[in-house]
Structures are given as structure tokens and as C-alpha cells.
Design a protein around this nucleic acid. Structure first.
Lengths: 233, 233
DNA sequence: TATTTGCGTTCGACACGTCTAATCCGAGGT
DNA sequence: ACCTCGGATTAGACGTGTCGAACGCAAATA
């Protein structure tokens, strides 16, 4: 049996690995989990002993297939919970993260199954993040663009926003920028600030570069406009 | 902050205290929580340091008001979760206990509030156990009788069954003996076996003494036939 | 190539929750 | 009043997860 702490490490390594590719450094893990580097070194050693990560000293760490499976399981719990809390317990879009972060380690397989059924086996969570399938196959890479990769005049549909920063989420939520929203890019300032107009509501918003970086979009009218609606119920 | 383990001890002490009255012995706690007596002694020492229990060495332990409040909080979580899992996630009556036992330590106050609202602020859980109020006032004593206190020919309404033994619960569930059921006592054997007929379905069941002891009832047609229906939604 | 500098790792320590083995109370029987 | 025996406590140990301080490696700099 794995402790919740170990699950947290595996999830962190998975996420960092997806973002910047393996190997993942000790200090990145420490930063992500708010631990000190010696703590991470020692924990990573234990994960290696259990065959959940491969490691090269002074280089970095990478999940084994087994470690990846555990990470996907935790991620599935997390994202199902986010969807569930949002749709059935009336949580706001920005409140769900902390609750899911705790509960993801403590729900049973039974609970997972029942929640998934109730939601109609969704494939994305409320932030647009993909939910790993029940058999925990590796997720496909996110092929969509960042909002900041697009230029003035283009029309895009939001597919996904980062769920790591609560304040950012609250801002986007009340600004009406959520998965499924169609945006028209009004202006791009030299320092990366992007001004967009939500097509449905005609509201204009300016978003700093860091925010524009974490919003994933596809071109409006591009192939397969189905993803945002795939989250059942 | 209290650990989940400490919460478990406080809950256990509370329950034992309600059952057999203070002081609660080390070995009873050990038995209840499936730990060894030295472990309990050491933990009880820590609870005493934190002002959650009063203790007299070699005698036993009793919750302080503060410790009782914590126990009631955990109990509220547990019983709300049981009600919630039963009513909204389609858990069977006997499955909920283990899931609730874990989750009770990990849900936020926010979650507690939302679940309570959704259920209509129930005052009893699916087993008929009282749910502590949000302000965590001490629970009133259970004034109802045990099934085994009644004699042949009497009609009683089930108000409450113990949730500690999963097998027993499964049996009672499929036997149709649940809170709200009206029973007529058909026979009492000398060794405590009670045979009852469920009035609504006319099914007859024989219950061993241990089971008959853990079923609480009130006389059918007695004052205030309202309790079993008080669990909203 | 020699040195600096930034990470990473090792070392020692600590709190928690648990156990076994050994010892110690104290209530009930004589 | 004494002894016994069941239950409680102390003593010592271990695994987990965490830290700060000291040390070591390796890549970039000169």
C-alpha cells in the first residue's frame, strides 16, 4: 500500500513530466510540493526502491509504467471529484481544487465507479483537463495551442485552463472565460498582455501573459468542435 | 491540528462512554480500535496533554467538553456521509460504513455544510443513529428500548440498528428490518432468540440475542411516531 | 585546465503512531 | 492484612516523513 504522501509525489512527478518532459529535477518537485530538497531526495529513494520511478543520481527522476499508473489513478480521482463537486454539490469552479486534492487519496474504487457513473463517465473535468480512463491508459498529449500563441483578430474556443492557481481561476470564472467560451483576440501588447472579447457576451478582458499562457484554445471552426461538450450529465 | 488517528480515538472514547458510561478503560479502547494497550496508553497521554480527555492513571479516561466536541464533529461527518452515500450515490445500507469511516476525517466544513443542505439537514442517519447538530451540542441519551426487552405479542417500530457489524447489517437489510419497520414479536426462546414478523410484509425472521440487543425500538402507537421520517430529502 | 557556483545528496535529528517485553498497580479472595 | 492476578503502564525499538547543516558533484566560467 502507498501512503497519500507517496501518491502526491507520483502525481507531482507526472505533472512536471508532462509539462517539461523527463527527467524531473529534485528542486522542481520540492518547489511543486512545498518541501525541502533533502526531503524529496529521501522520498524519491523510497519510490525507486518500490519500482515506481527510475532515477539517475544528480540527474533526475522519471516515472516507470507502474508509477505512471498510480499517478493516473490519483489524477482520475482528482478530476472526477472536481467534476462531481461542481455538478452535484454546487461548488464553484475555483473552490473544488483543495477539496479534491485531499479526497483523491481517500475515496474507494467503489466511490470512484459510482461517481463516474453518475456523471456519465466524463472525459474532461470542469477546467477542461482530461480525465484518465478507468483502465488508466496513458493520456494523449495536449495538442492544443496556448492563447498567447494566437494573434490579433483570430477567433478561438477555450478548451482548458490551469487549475493550479485559485485566484486566477476566480478571476477567469467571473470574467466568463471557461472551457467552451469563444474568444476574439482584440489586442496583444508587447509585454504579452492579451485583450480578448467573449463573443457570446461581448465582454472585453485583458489577461496578463502568465494567464494567457495557461489558457489552452483551439481555432474556432477548426476540426471536431466536440470536446468541451463531452463532459456528460 | 488533530491527526485522523486522534480523531479516531476521540470518537471511540465517545461511543464507549455513551455505551457503558465513563470512565472508559484502556483495554476497551484497544479492543474497539484494534490496537494494543500500550499504544492506547501512549495516545491517551497525548490527548490528555492537549486537554481533550481527563485521566486518572490505572482507572480510565473521560472526554473533556472540548474532546467531546471533536468527537461530535467526527460523528456528524460520519453520519452525514452515511446518509449522503445512501441517498445520492446509491450505496446499500451495509456498504456505507467503511467509506464514511475514512472520509469523515477528510471532508472540509464546506463539504459538510453542502451535504447537510442537500439532505435537508437530517437529524438521523440511515441506521437511525442521531446526527449531531451543526453547533455540536451534546446528544440526548437514547431513551428507546432494546428489541430484546419486549415480550411476545407486542408490536414495536424499529428506530435504530447498530452500524458496527457489516454482516449483521446485510442480514437485516435483506430481511427488511430497517428503521421505520413495524414488527410483531412472535416468540422469544429461552436463550434470547427473538422471532418477529414484519407487519407490512408478513415475513417472519428469527434473530439471535446479540442482534436483538442491538436493535432499538419504540412501542407501536406510542407517543410521537415522527422520528423515523425526520431524515429529510 | 582550474575554479566557481548551484544543485543534489548524505548525515543526524525529531515527532508520530505503533509494537513487544518487562514491570507495576490495586481490587478481590483468603 | 496478605497475596494473587488481570489490567495498565513504562521502557525500548522501529518505520515513516520531515527538517537543517554539511558535504559532494558537475556544468559553466575564466
Amino acid at each position: 500500500m502507498l501512503s497519500d504522501v507517496m501518491e502526491d509525489y507520483l502525481k507531482a512527478i507526472y505533472i512536471l513530466q508532462v509539462e517539461h518532459g523527463p527527467p524531473v529535477s529534485t528542486s522542481d518537485i520540492a518547489e511543486y510540493l512545498d518541501k525541502t530538497p533533502p526531503t524529496v531526495t529521501s522520498m524519491v529513494g523510497k519510490l525507486e526502491e518500490r519500482g515506481l520511478v527510475d532515477r539517475e543520481k544528480y540527474k533526475g527522476v522519471e516515472l516507470t509504467r507502474e508509477g505512471e499508473t498510480v499517478a493516473l489513478e490519483v489524477l482520475r480521482h482528482h478530476r472526477l471529484l472536481e467534476a462531481y463537486l461542481t455538478e452535484h454539490l454546487d461548488y464553484s469552479w475555483s473552490e473544488v481544487h483543495d477539496e479534491a486534492d485531499t479526497l483523491e487519496h481517500h475515496i474507494s474504487e467503489e466511490f470512484e465507479r459510482r461517481v463516474a457513473d453518475l456523471l456519465g463517465n466524463p472525459t474532461v473535468d470542469p477546467h477542461g483537463d482530461p480525465i484518465p480512463s478507468p483502465d488508466l491508459e496513458p493520456l494523449e498529449e495536449d495538442e492544443t495551442n496556448r492563447l498567447s500563441d494566437h494573434g490579433v483578430g483570430e477567433r478561438v474556443v477555450v478548451t482548458r485552463v490551469s487549475d493550479r492557481d485559485e485566484e486566477e481561476l476566480e478571476y477567469l470564472e467571473q470574467a466568463g472565460v471557461t472551457p467552451g467560451t469563444t474568444l476574439e483576440i482584440v489586442d496583444v501588447a508587447p509585454f504579452g498582455m492579451v485583450t480578448v472579447r467573449a463573443v457570446e457576451t461581448a465582454r472585453e478582458q485583458s489577461l496578463p501573459e502568465s494567464v494567457a499562457d495557461s489558457i489552452r484554445v483551439r481555432s474556432a471552426g477548426a476540426d471536431e468542435p466536440a470536446q468541451a461538450e463531452a463532459n456528460g450529465a
